[in-house]
Amino acid sequence: MAIIPPDTGLTPATSFERLLRIMDDLRENCPWDMKQTMESLRHLTIEETYELSDAILSGDMQEVRKELGDIMLHLVFYARIGSETKDFDITQVLNGICDKLINRHPHIYSDTEVNDEADVKRNWEKIKLKEGNKSVLGGVPASLPALVKASRIQEKARGIGFDWERKEQVWEKVEEELQEFKAEFNVVENSSIDKEKAEGEFGDLLFSLINYARFININPEDALEKTNRKFIKRFQYLEGKAVEQGRALQDMTLAEMDVFWNEAKKL
């Protein structure tokens, strides 16, 4: 089979058409691609999305470009499968999102007036309800990780005006939830705790912290991931220093490990 060459015109339309033709070839001739279903691709798509997220957080734009290509392939793959079952095809997918964007941006494509981003979000949620959504929160995927889900829930509630007025109020709620968690967890006493109640209060505390982060324009998912990476970097420095000394971490005292940990913090 002839290899489909890159288009010399280098236009988005011709490049996309090239990808579609390659997808057709793979689906019809490659044993692996022929075998795939939407269900078998699903976990791979999730993995590719996380790889894109890693590239973005790393600031590696070439990796971002590559990962976007991987995700684009998956989208085309799903559309190809949809066309085989005669449920939908790539043209319907693309026109569907175009129509949705036009409908949900009446301040661009109609005569609706907005003053700021908040107005745009409120209009967006109102239009979604008119389209058939029974709840403003109905569009939040049930399978989202809890931290991301909390952010999306709060953003959507804000979109219809259900929100605090000032960040000081939100911080007061954080402090209130912290005190309730401390009281439930018996932070000073050693008496037993009601794990279910303590877990509930901890969840409330996290939710209020995420809410405050939203108020001061911090993405909590990004913030936590950056802290994860910082911890990993410092811990691996600690491991490296232990190896240099010919020692195992489990044989070192906490005070000894703290020496290297503090060195890592200065790097």
Rank of each mutant, 00 (worst) to 15 (best):
A2N: 10
P6T: 03
T8S: 10
G9C: 06
L10K: 07
F16I: 02
E17L: 11
D25K: 12
R27S: 13
N29I: 08
D33M: 13
T37S: 15
M38D: 11
R42Q: 14
R42N: 13
Y50L: 13
A55K: 01
I56E: 05
I56G: 01
I56F: 08
D60E: 12
L68D: 00
M72P: 01
A79K: 01
R80L: 00
G82I: 07
G82S: 06
T85A: 10
K86P: 01
D87Y: 06
F88P: 00
T91V: 15
T91R: 11
L94R: 08
G96W: 07
I97F: 15
C98S: 11
K100N: 09
I108Y: 07
T112N: 05
V114H: 04
R122G: 07
K126I: 07
K130T: 12
N133Y: 12
V136A: 04
G139A: 12
V140D: 02
P145M: 11
V148C: 03
A150S: 13
S151I: 09
Q154L: 14
Q154S: 08
G159D: 04
I160Y: 14
F162N: 09
W164H: 13
E165Q: 12
E165G: 03
R166T: 11
R166E: 13
K167S: 15
E172I: 10
K173E: 12
V174T: 01
L178I: 01
Q179N: 13
E180V: 07
F181W: 13
K182S: 10
A183T: 14
F185Y: 10
V187R: 05
D194Q: 09
E196K: 14
K197E: 10
E199M: 11
D204A: 12
L205M: 11
L205G: 02
S208M: 11
F215R: 04
F215D: 03
I216W: 04
N217K: 14
I218L: 15
I218D: 04
L224W: 09
K226M: 12
I232N: 05
K233C: 03
F235C: 03
G240Q: 01
A242H: 01
V243R: 04
A248I: 05
A248G: 00
D251G: 02
L254P: 00
A255W: 05
V259H: 14
F260C: 04
F260W: 14
F260T: 03
N262P: 00
K266F: 00
